[in-house]
């Protein structure tokens, strides 16, 4: 029987119009309790209008050892950014 309450990750939307942001984690026996605990722990100071909780074990994370192949190739693709293109100053609003 000796099972500990699992760990949950908490995401809070601080006001409508903004995305849910990772706020931290906590322990709870089930999803309902996790939501209630998240409300009590992370929104004591009026920090939120919406909460997501997800059990930590369901999050798949990339491995920092793969950062080279995952993220570095994007670094030199400067043509994806507007500043790559030179236009005369007379052209407005572009």
């Amino acid at each position: 029987m000796k099972k500990d309450w699992p760990l949950w990750e908490v995401f809070v939307r601080s006001k409508n119009g903004l995305e849910h942001r990772h706020f931290g984690s906590l322990h709870a026996a089930d999803a309902e309790m996790a939501l209630e605990n998240a409300r009590d722990v992370y929104t004591r100071r009026n920090e939120g209008v919406s909460i997501w909780v997800v059990e930590s074990k369901y999050i798949t994370a990339s491995n920092p050892a793969d950062n080279g192949e995952l993220f570095e190739p994007a670094k030199d693709k400067v043509y994806r950014h507007p500043t790559f293109y030179h236009l005369p100053d007379e052209v407005k609003h572009m």
Binding site: W5, L26, H27, A28, M33, E36, N37, D40, V41, R44
Partner: peptide, 11 residues
């Protein structure tokens, strides 16, 4: 019985 319940009951 747990930190989380402590916080909830205090609320």
């Amino acid at each position: 019985p747990s930190l989380e319940t402590d916080i909830a009951l205090t609320n």
